[in-house]
Design a protein around this nucleic acid. Structure first.
Length: 272
DNA sequence: CGGGCCCCCTGGTGGC
DNA sequence: TGCCACCAGGGGGCCC
Protein backbone atom coordinates (compact mmCIF):
# COMPACT_ATOMS: atom_id res chain seq x y z
CA UNK A 1 0.00 0.00 0.00
CA UNK A 2 1.88 3.02 -1.17
CA UNK A 3 1.92 5.77 1.44
CA UNK A 4 4.17 8.83 1.57
CA UNK A 5 7.53 6.99 1.73
CA UNK A 6 6.61 4.62 -1.08
CA UNK A 7 5.28 7.35 -3.38
CA UNK A 8 8.35 9.47 -2.68
CA UNK A 9 10.61 6.49 -3.44
CA UNK A 10 8.76 5.93 -6.71
CA UNK A 11 9.18 9.61 -7.56
CA UNK A 12 12.94 9.48 -6.99
CA UNK A 13 13.59 6.16 -8.72
CA UNK A 14 11.27 6.75 -11.66
CA UNK A 15 12.69 10.15 -12.51
CA UNK A 16 15.92 8.94 -14.18
CA UNK A 17 13.87 6.69 -16.47
CA UNK A 18 11.63 9.45 -17.78
CA UNK A 19 13.52 12.73 -17.41
CA UNK A 20 14.02 14.38 -20.80
CA UNK A 21 11.93 11.71 -22.55
CA UNK A 22 9.16 12.71 -24.92
CA UNK A 23 5.83 10.89 -24.96
CA UNK A 24 5.05 9.39 -28.38
CA UNK A 25 1.81 7.61 -27.64
CA UNK A 26 -0.85 6.97 -25.04
CA UNK A 27 -2.71 3.70 -24.73
CA UNK A 28 -5.62 3.57 -22.29
CA UNK A 29 -6.56 -0.04 -21.61
CA UNK A 30 -8.87 0.70 -18.70
CA UNK A 31 -10.92 3.85 -19.04
CA UNK A 32 -12.01 3.62 -15.41
CA UNK A 33 -8.45 4.37 -14.34
CA UNK A 34 -8.59 7.82 -15.93
CA UNK A 35 -10.53 10.38 -13.92
CA UNK A 36 -11.72 13.88 -14.73
CA UNK A 37 -10.72 13.79 -18.38
CA UNK A 38 -11.68 11.73 -21.42
CA UNK A 39 -8.93 9.39 -22.71
CA UNK A 40 -8.86 11.17 -26.09
CA UNK A 41 -8.44 14.54 -24.38
CA UNK A 42 -5.68 13.13 -22.18
CA UNK A 43 -3.94 11.81 -25.28
CA UNK A 44 -3.97 15.30 -26.80
CA UNK A 45 -2.49 16.72 -23.59
CA UNK A 46 0.37 14.25 -23.19
CA UNK A 47 1.49 13.12 -26.66
CA UNK A 48 4.45 15.27 -27.67
CA UNK A 49 5.07 16.32 -24.06
CA UNK A 50 8.50 16.15 -22.43
CA UNK A 51 9.03 14.99 -18.83
CA UNK A 52 10.95 17.71 -17.00
CA UNK A 53 10.19 17.22 -13.30
CA UNK A 54 8.28 15.09 -10.79
CA UNK A 55 6.63 16.31 -7.62
CA UNK A 56 4.72 14.67 -4.79
CA UNK A 57 1.94 15.91 -2.51
CA UNK A 58 0.85 13.37 0.07
CA UNK A 59 0.23 10.17 -1.85
CA UNK A 60 -0.23 12.00 -5.16
CA UNK A 61 2.52 11.93 -7.74
CA UNK A 62 2.76 14.66 -10.37
CA UNK A 63 4.83 13.97 -13.48
CA UNK A 64 5.37 17.36 -15.12
CA UNK A 65 5.30 17.78 -18.87
CA UNK A 66 7.19 20.90 -19.85
CA UNK A 67 4.89 23.78 -20.80
CA UNK A 68 1.85 21.51 -20.67
CA UNK A 69 0.89 20.39 -17.21
CA UNK A 70 0.83 17.55 -14.72
CA UNK A 71 0.13 13.89 -15.25
CA UNK A 72 -1.18 13.11 -11.77
CA UNK A 73 -1.26 9.60 -10.34
CA UNK A 74 -2.66 8.07 -7.19
CA UNK A 75 -1.58 4.45 -6.69
CA UNK A 76 -4.16 3.68 -3.99
CA UNK A 77 -3.69 0.03 -2.93
CA UNK A 78 -1.90 -1.86 -5.68
CA UNK A 79 -0.98 0.69 -8.33
CA UNK A 80 2.52 0.36 -9.82
CA UNK A 81 4.51 2.41 -12.28
CA UNK A 82 6.87 0.33 -14.37
CA UNK A 83 9.22 1.16 -17.24
CA UNK A 84 9.55 -1.65 -19.77
CA UNK A 85 10.52 -1.96 -23.42
CA UNK A 86 7.41 -1.38 -25.52
CA UNK A 87 8.03 -4.76 -27.15
CA UNK A 88 7.46 -6.63 -23.90
CA UNK A 89 4.08 -8.28 -23.34
CA UNK A 90 1.49 -6.32 -21.42
CA UNK A 91 1.09 -7.02 -17.73
CA UNK A 92 -2.15 -8.73 -16.72
CA UNK A 93 -3.52 -5.63 -14.99
CA UNK A 94 -2.11 -2.97 -17.29
CA UNK A 95 -4.35 0.11 -17.22
CA UNK A 96 -2.39 2.70 -19.17
CA UNK A 97 0.81 2.81 -21.23
CA UNK A 98 2.82 5.83 -22.35
CA UNK A 99 5.18 5.17 -25.25
CA UNK A 100 8.48 7.03 -24.83
CA UNK A 101 10.96 8.20 -27.47
CA UNK A 102 13.62 5.71 -26.34
CA UNK A 103 11.52 2.64 -27.08
CA UNK A 104 10.45 2.20 -23.46
CA UNK A 105 6.95 2.39 -22.09
CA UNK A 106 5.88 3.94 -18.82
CA UNK A 107 3.11 1.63 -17.66
CA UNK A 108 0.52 2.04 -14.96
CA UNK A 109 -0.39 -1.41 -13.68
CA UNK A 110 -3.06 -1.86 -11.03
CA UNK A 111 -4.34 -5.24 -9.97
CA UNK A 112 -7.13 -3.91 -7.78
CA UNK A 113 -8.04 -1.03 -10.06
CA UNK A 114 -8.42 1.53 -7.27
CA UNK A 115 -5.63 3.71 -8.63
CA UNK A 116 -6.39 6.78 -10.71
CA UNK A 117 -4.72 8.95 -13.31
CA UNK A 118 -5.68 12.63 -13.53
CA UNK A 119 -4.59 15.58 -15.60
CA UNK A 120 -3.87 19.10 -14.35
CA UNK A 121 -3.00 22.03 -16.61
CA UNK A 122 -1.13 23.97 -13.95
CA UNK A 123 0.39 23.92 -10.49
CA UNK A 124 -2.91 25.28 -9.18
CA UNK A 125 -4.70 22.46 -10.97
CA UNK A 126 -2.35 19.93 -9.39
CA UNK A 127 -3.01 21.42 -5.95
CA UNK A 128 -6.74 21.15 -6.61
CA UNK A 129 -6.45 17.43 -7.43
CA UNK A 130 -3.94 16.69 -4.67
CA UNK A 131 -5.96 18.54 -2.06
CA UNK A 132 -4.12 17.51 1.10
CA UNK A 133 -2.80 19.04 4.30
CA UNK A 134 0.71 19.71 5.56
CA UNK A 135 3.65 17.59 4.40
CA UNK A 136 4.96 15.82 7.51
CA UNK A 137 8.56 15.69 6.29
CA UNK A 138 8.69 19.38 5.34
CA UNK A 139 10.33 22.08 7.45
CA UNK A 140 6.91 23.66 7.71
CA UNK A 141 5.73 20.71 9.82
CA UNK A 142 6.54 21.61 13.42
CA UNK A 143 5.04 20.30 16.68
CA UNK A 144 3.02 23.51 16.73
CA UNK A 145 1.59 22.80 13.30
CA UNK A 146 0.71 19.25 14.39
CA UNK A 147 -0.98 20.67 17.49
CA UNK A 148 -3.10 22.89 15.25
CA UNK A 149 -4.03 19.86 13.10
CA UNK A 150 -5.43 18.11 16.16
CA UNK A 151 -6.69 20.95 18.34
CA UNK A 152 -10.40 20.99 19.04
CA UNK A 153 -11.04 17.66 17.30
CA UNK A 154 -13.03 14.95 19.00
CA UNK A 155 -12.09 12.42 16.33
CA UNK A 156 -10.12 9.42 17.44
CA UNK A 157 -6.47 10.18 17.00
CA UNK A 158 -5.76 7.52 14.39
CA UNK A 159 -8.68 8.70 12.26
CA UNK A 160 -7.29 12.22 12.42
CA UNK A 161 -3.84 11.00 11.34
CA UNK A 162 -5.43 9.21 8.37
CA UNK A 163 -7.35 12.34 7.37
CA UNK A 164 -5.38 13.51 4.33
CA UNK A 165 -6.76 17.02 4.67
CA UNK A 166 -4.89 17.40 7.96
CA UNK A 167 -1.64 15.54 7.35
CA UNK A 168 -0.59 14.45 3.90
CA UNK A 169 0.56 10.93 3.22
CA UNK A 170 -0.01 8.81 6.32
CA UNK A 171 -1.81 5.53 5.66
CA UNK A 172 -2.62 2.57 7.83
CA UNK A 173 0.95 1.32 8.24
CA UNK A 174 2.62 4.57 9.25
CA UNK A 175 -0.28 5.76 11.37
CA UNK A 176 0.15 2.65 13.55
CA UNK A 177 3.95 2.93 13.53
CA UNK A 178 3.85 6.63 14.45
CA UNK A 179 1.41 6.09 17.32
CA UNK A 180 3.49 3.25 18.70
CA UNK A 181 6.69 5.29 18.55
CA UNK A 182 4.88 8.10 20.35
CA UNK A 183 3.38 5.78 22.97
CA UNK A 184 -0.15 7.11 22.44
CA UNK A 185 -3.36 5.07 22.14
CA UNK A 186 -5.00 5.21 18.68
CA UNK A 187 -8.43 5.89 20.16
CA UNK A 188 -7.49 8.94 22.20
CA UNK A 189 -9.55 11.97 21.17
CA UNK A 190 -7.30 13.92 18.79
CA UNK A 191 -7.77 17.14 20.70
CA UNK A 192 -6.93 15.61 24.08
CA UNK A 193 -3.15 15.39 23.66
CA UNK A 194 -0.90 17.34 25.99
CA UNK A 195 1.88 19.49 24.58
CA UNK A 196 4.40 16.78 25.53
CA UNK A 197 2.34 14.12 23.76
CA UNK A 198 2.02 16.23 20.61
CA UNK A 199 5.79 16.61 20.62
CA UNK A 200 6.22 12.83 20.99
CA UNK A 201 3.73 12.19 18.19
CA UNK A 202 5.48 14.72 15.97
CA UNK A 203 8.75 12.88 16.52
CA UNK A 204 7.06 9.49 16.03
CA UNK A 205 5.62 10.54 12.67
CA UNK A 206 8.94 11.96 11.49
CA UNK A 207 10.89 8.90 12.59
CA UNK A 208 8.45 6.36 11.16
CA UNK A 209 8.41 8.11 7.78
CA UNK A 210 12.14 8.83 7.68
CA UNK A 211 13.02 5.22 8.50
CA UNK A 212 10.66 3.97 5.80
CA UNK A 213 12.12 6.36 3.27
CA UNK A 214 15.67 5.26 4.11
CA UNK A 215 14.57 1.65 3.62
CA UNK A 216 12.98 2.37 0.24
CA UNK A 217 9.43 1.82 1.49
CA UNK A 218 7.45 -1.13 2.83
CA UNK A 219 6.70 -4.04 0.51
CA UNK A 220 4.02 -6.31 1.95
CA UNK A 221 2.89 -7.71 -1.37
CA UNK A 222 2.71 -5.46 -4.39
CA UNK A 223 4.76 -2.33 -3.86
CA UNK A 224 7.90 -1.85 -5.97
CA UNK A 225 9.82 1.33 -6.78
CA UNK A 226 10.45 2.89 -10.20
CA UNK A 227 13.22 0.36 -10.83
CA UNK A 228 10.91 -2.54 -10.04
CA UNK A 229 12.63 -3.22 -6.72
CA UNK A 230 10.81 -3.93 -3.46
CA UNK A 231 11.52 -1.89 -0.35
CA UNK A 232 12.94 -3.35 2.86
CA UNK A 233 11.06 -1.41 5.51
CA UNK A 234 8.81 -4.41 6.16
CA UNK A 235 11.77 -5.84 8.10
CA UNK A 236 11.86 -2.75 10.32
CA UNK A 237 8.19 -2.35 11.22
CA UNK A 238 7.59 -2.23 14.97
CA UNK A 239 3.89 -3.13 15.25
CA UNK A 240 2.04 -3.14 11.92
CA UNK A 241 0.86 -6.67 11.12
CA UNK A 242 2.27 -7.99 14.40
CA UNK A 243 -0.85 -8.46 16.54
CA UNK A 244 -0.25 -11.20 19.11
CA UNK A 245 3.52 -10.84 18.92
CA UNK A 246 5.45 -9.34 21.84
CA UNK A 247 5.77 -5.56 22.01
CA UNK A 248 9.33 -4.53 21.03
CA UNK A 249 9.47 -2.19 24.03
CA UNK A 250 7.75 -4.04 26.90
CA UNK A 251 7.21 -7.58 25.65
CA UNK A 252 3.49 -7.75 26.34
CA UNK A 253 1.35 -9.04 23.44
CA UNK A 254 0.38 -6.47 20.82
CA UNK A 255 -3.38 -6.08 20.44
CA UNK A 256 -5.65 -5.51 17.50
CA UNK A 257 -8.49 -3.01 17.17
CA UNK A 258 -10.65 -1.62 14.39
CA UNK A 259 -10.39 2.15 14.16
CA UNK A 260 -11.87 4.19 11.33
CA UNK A 261 -12.59 0.93 9.52
CA UNK A 262 -8.93 -0.07 9.54
CA UNK A 263 -7.14 -2.89 11.28
CA UNK A 264 -5.09 -1.27 14.03
CA UNK A 265 -2.24 -2.78 16.03
CA UNK A 266 -1.05 -1.23 19.28
CA UNK A 267 0.58 -2.08 22.58
CA UNK A 268 -1.84 -1.82 25.51
CA UNK A 269 1.12 -1.45 27.88
CA UNK A 270 3.01 1.31 26.07
CA UNK A 271 0.27 3.27 24.31
CA UNK A 272 -1.87 5.22 26.75
C1' DC B 1 -18.86 17.32 13.35
C1' DG B 2 -17.98 12.47 13.64
C1' DG B 3 -18.97 7.50 13.28
C1' DG B 4 -20.35 3.78 10.62
C1' DC B 5 -21.21 1.61 6.49
C1' DC B 6 -20.96 0.75 1.50
C1' DC B 7 -18.62 0.75 -2.80
C1' DC B 8 -14.93 0.23 -5.95
C1' DC B 9 -11.66 -4.59 -6.74
C1' DT B 10 -8.64 -8.88 -6.77
C1' DG B 11 -6.22 -12.46 -4.74
C1' DG B 12 -4.95 -14.91 -0.70
C1' DT B 13 -6.57 -17.68 3.15
C1' DG B 14 -9.10 -20.88 5.84
C1' DG B 15 -13.18 -23.82 6.60
C1' DC B 16 -15.70 -27.72 5.04
C1' DT C 1 -9.49 -30.79 -5.05
C1' DG C 2 -13.02 -27.39 -5.24
C1' DC C 3 -16.15 -24.11 -3.60
C1' DC C 4 -17.14 -20.19 -0.93
C1' DA C 5 -17.17 -16.76 2.62
C1' DC C 6 -14.23 -13.49 4.31
C1' DC C 7 -10.52 -10.18 4.63
C1' DA C 8 -7.17 -6.47 3.25
C1' DG C 9 -7.74 -1.15 2.55
C1' DG C 10 -7.48 4.57 0.18
C1' DG C 11 -10.83 7.47 -0.60
C1' DG C 12 -15.40 9.19 -1.72
C1' DG C 13 -20.21 9.14 -0.83
C1' DC C 14 -24.08 8.63 2.02
C1' DC C 15 -26.90 8.40 6.12
C1' DC C 16 -27.72 9.04 10.96
Amino acid sequence: MPELPEVETVRRTLLPHILGRTICSLLVLREGSVAGIAPAALEAKVVGGLFCRAVRRGKYLGLILQGRGYLVLHLRMTGRLVVRPASEPHEKHLCLALGLDDGQELRFVDQRRFGKVYWADSQQGFAAVAKVGVEPLSAEFTPDVLARCLRGSRMRLKAALLDQGRLAGLGNIYADESLFRAGIHPERPAGSLTEIEVERLWRGIREALTAALENGGTTLRDYVDGDGRPGSNQYHLLVYGKAGKPCPKCGSPLMRLRVAGRGTVYCPGCQL
